[in-house]
Every structure is written in C-alpha cells, then in structure tokens.
C-alpha cells in the first residue's frame, strides 16, 4: 500500500514539475509575479487549459503520427535498435511492474513475470551500452557556489533544464544499476529471507526512481524538441 501511495505521489510530482517547467518557460505571466500563491493560481489555470487542449488534440492517429515523427527512426541502424530495445524493454518493465504492483495483490506472476525478467536482462545490457557511449554527453557539473543562505531559494540554485536533464540521465543510470543488482542478488544463494524481502522492496523503489527519472528526461526532451530553434536528440550539448 505504501508503495502505491508513494508511486502515485512521486509520479504526480514529476508530471507537475514538468508541467511547471513548461509553464515557466513558455508563459510570461509565470515570470510576472513573485508571489507563490499567485503563481500557483496561474499555473493551475494554465494546467487546466492545457489539459483540455491536449485532450481535444489527442487521438490514436495523432499519437501514431507523433511516434512516426520521432527522431529515433532517423538514427543510424545500431543506435536505432539500441534505442528501440532500451525504450521498449523499459516501457514493458515499467508497465508490467507497476501495474501488477499497484493493482494485483499477488504481484507479478505467470507469463508476464517471465517476460519481465527477460526484458530486464535486455534493459540491463542496453543501459550499459547507452551509458558507455552516451554518458560522455552528460559529464558536466554546476559551477562551484559560495555557501550562502540564498542557496535555499530555488530560484537562485541554478536549476536549469540542462542540469535537470543531466541529473535525470544519471539518476536513470544509477536506478537501472540498482534494479539490476536487486534482481541479480536474490537469484544467487546469498540472501536469507529478510534480505530477499528487502531486495524485493528495494527493486520496486529503484524502479520508481527509474520511472520518474525517465519521465523527467523524456519530458524535457519532448519539450525541447517541440520548441523552435532548439536541437533535439541525446547527443545535443545542453550544458
């Protein structure tokens, strides 16, 4: 039950954060006030309007056209298949894992479980390759900051989309590593029952971290790709 509550809250927070980032970036009224309460009111109104607009525009055809237009399909062959395997396995892992964890009391079982394990192996391998060849694009750090109380103000922390994207990538990689470890260790004759129980819960929460990181990263990518004048793709320099 706790996992369900935490999942819902964290994923909702991720979506709200992305939506706020879009609001802040695209709307003048977001930057026209310093009052948080006023800001929240405007954000809520904008979110409601956008939700209605997107619902009206959404359709299976629109989603299919969007998928076909992804830059993924124009990548070189190996990169394309790497992306397909990585995204595809992750989507199945997230869908099967969270659906059974939240809605099925028994948890994941049967053929979905077998497929989940197989997809996990594929995801682990693809993640390693991705980090190995794409991680270099995400090596950057914030400038050293002086220790002052202004650091507590979110607006002065220097939280930029590029930095969030960077942190999302490495969080995703770290969570993927933890997912691999928490799946592998119970398969070995190392952990007793308390350890097995711990790893089971650890795997779930690692998955949650991975999911949120993926949502944030994908959200920023989609937003950046949708804005004119901004290059898209993982390889772009966003520092």
């Amino acid at each position: 039950m706790w996992f369900t509550i935490v999942t819902v809250l964290v994923v909702a927070a991720g979506f709200v954060g992305l939506a706020f980032h879009r609001f802040w970036t695209t709307r003048e009224e977001a930057r026209s006030t310093l009052l948080y309460a006023e800001l929240a009111k405007r954000f809520s109104a904008w979110t409601a309007l956008r939700t209605v607009q997107m619902a009206r525009r959404a359709s299976p055809r629109a989603w299919w056209d969007y998928l076909k237009g992804l830059p993924l399909w124009r990548e070189p062959l190996l990169e394309k298949w790497l992306s397909i395997c990585l995204y595809g396995s992750f989507l199945y892992l997230a869908a099967s894992g969270f659906f059974f964890a939240i809605f099925i009391p028994r948890g994941l079982f049967g053929f979905p479980l077998v497929a989940h394990v197989m997809a996990g192996g594929l995801f682990a391998v693809c993640l390693v390759i991705t980090v190995l060849f794409k991680g270099r694009d995400f090596i950057t750090v914030p400038k050293p900051a002086h220790l002052t109380l202004t650091l507590l103000d979110p607006r002065k922390m220097g939280i930029t989309p590029a930095r969030v994207r960077l942190w999302a990538f490495w969080t995703f990689a770290l969570a993927g590593f933890l997912l691999t470890i928490s799946a592998l260790l119970p398969m070995l004759p190392l952990l007793r029952t308390p350890g097995q129980k711990f790893m089971f819960e650890f795997h779930r929460y690692s998955a949650l971290a991975s999911l949120v990181a993926a949502i944030v990263f994908a959200g920023l990518e989609i937003f950046a790709a949708g804005r004119p004048g901004t290059p898209a793709g993982l390889g772009a320099d966003r520092s």
């Binding site: 390693v128 980090v131 190995l132 470890i181 592998l184």
Partner: peptide, 20 residues
C-alpha cells in the same frame, strides 16, 4: 548464462557510475 550477463552488465554499469 542470464545471471552471468546481468552480473557483467551490473559490473560495467557500476564502474561507469563510480567513474562518473
């Protein structure tokens, strides 16, 4: 074999994370 692949993947990923 599956465990071996996972182990290798975890080792490499972990090493890369440490280096990063």
């Amino acid at each position: 074999a599956f465990k071996l692949v996972l182990g290798i993947a975890a080792f490499i990923a972990g090493a890369l994370l440490v280096i990063a």
